[in-house]
Write a protein that binds this DNA or RNA. Structure first.
Length: 277
DNA sequence: CTCAGTGTTCAGTG
DNA sequence: TCACTGAACACTGA
C-alpha cells in the first residue's frame, strides 16, 4: 500500500528502531527484485555498518550508514517494513488471521541490529526494488523525481508554472513522479475530489484558482495521511478514499453523490461528476 | 478460472 | 522532445 504516506511511515519506523545501531546480521533474498547488485553485495553493504538514519523522497526510501553505499528500497505495489510481532499496516495480507510468523512471508531483506532489534523488507508481488547508491539524492532514480509534497511543496507560483507547462490530463500529471514524487492512484483521486477538479481536465487549461485548490488539497491530503501514520481507518470519514474501492455500481460519497470509475492515463480513476467540474 | 491492482519502465507510434 | 498506448513485470485476493 505504498504511496507517500505509507512509505513515510516505514521511514519513521526504521529511523526510530535502527538509528545509531550496528548491523550484526543481514540476509538478502536471491531474487531479481535486487537489481544492479547481487544479494551478497547488499549483505556486504549492511553487515557491520552503523545506521545513521532512514530517508525518503517520494516513494523511495533509503537507509544511510557510517559508510557508503546506502541501501535503497522501493515497495512497488505491495510491501513494506516489518518488525517481529508488529501489526502489519503496510502489508499485503488482509486475511482474517494476521500473519505474525518471523521472518514474515515474502521477506526479501532481513536485518538484525546489535541490540537484538530485527526488521525485514517484505514484498509479495515482487514489483519492489532494492538498490545500492553512494549518493541516493543525486543518482537515479531519485535524482529524476519531482518535488516531494510532504517535504518540499513548491510555492504557489512555482506550482502553477509546473502545472501550466503540461498538456496531459491533470490526473495523469499528478501520477507523474517527475512532477510530484510520492503521489499514487488513491492520493491523486482524493486530491482531485477535494479540489473539485475533473480528472480529465488538461493541466494547461486549468484556471489559477483550480490550480491553487489542487495545491492546497495535495498538501492537506498528504499531511493528514502522514499525521496518522497512513492508518486508513483514521483518515477523515468524508474522504473519497473509504468509498472508492470495488467499483460498486451505485457507490456513493459520504453525502450521497455517485462515484464513477474511468480509465485515465492507464489507471482506474474514481471520481464524482456532480462535485468535480 | 479470470482479472484488477495503492507502481515503474521501456518500446513503439504519431 | 512531447504525448500517448500497450506490454511487461509477478502474484494475490476477489
Amino acid at each position: 500500500m505504498p504511496e507517500l504516506a505509507e512509505v513515510e511511515h516505514g521511514r519513521r519506523m526504521l529511523d526510530r528502531l535502527a538509528r545509531g545501531k550496528r548491523v550484526v546480521d543481514a540476509w538478502c533474498a536471491d531474487d531479481d527484485i535486487v537489481i544492479e547488485a547481487t544479494p551478497s553485495e547488499v549483505v556486504g553493504a549492511l553487515h557491520g555498518a552503523t545506521i545513521t538514519g532512514a530517508h525518503r523522497w517520494g516513494k523511495q526510501l533509503w537507509i544511510a550508514f557510517d559508510r557508503p553505499p546506502c541501501v535503497c528500497l522501493h515497495f512497488g505495489m505491495t510491501g513494506g517494513i516489518r518488525t517481529p510481532g508488529d501489526d502489519p499496516l503496510v502489508l499485503e495480507s488482509s486475511g482474517a488471521d494476521v500473519d505474525r510468523a518471523w521472518p514474515p512471508r515474502f521477506c526479501k531483506l532481513h536485518v538484525t541490529l546489535d541490540d537484538g532489534t530485527r526488521f525485514g523488507f517484505v514484498n509479495s508481488r515482487r514489483l519492489g526494488r532494492v538498490r545500492l547508491r553512494d549518493d541516493p539524492r543525486n543518482q537515479p532514480p531519485i535524482s529524476k523525481l519531482g518535488f516531494d509534497p510532504f517535504l518540499a511543496m513548491p510555492g504557489k507560483k512555482e506550482f502553477a508554472a509546473l502545472v501550466k507547462r503540461r498538456k496531459i490530463p491533470i490526473k495523469a500529471l499528478l501520477l507523474d513522479q517527475k512532477f510530484a514524487a510520492g503521489v499514487g492512484n488513491w492520493i491523486a483521486d482524493e486530491v482531485l475530489y477535494q479540489a473539485r477538479v475533473r480528472p480529465r481536465r488538461r493541466a494547461d487549461r486549468l484556471r489559477l484558482v483550480e490550480i491553487e485548490a489542487l495545491r492546497a488539497a495535495l498538501s492537506s491530503v498528504v499531511g493528514a495521511a502522514v499525521a496518522v501514520d497512513a492508518r486508513k481507518d483514521e483518515f477523515p470519514a468524508e474522504w473519497l478514499f473509504h468509498r472508492r474501492w470495488g467499483k460498486q455500481k451505485d457507490a456513493t460519497t459520504h453525502d450521497g453523490h455517485a462515484i464513477r470509475h474511468d480509465d485515465i492515463g492507464g489507471r482506474t480513476t474514481a471520481w464524482v461528476p456532480t462535485v468535480q467540474r
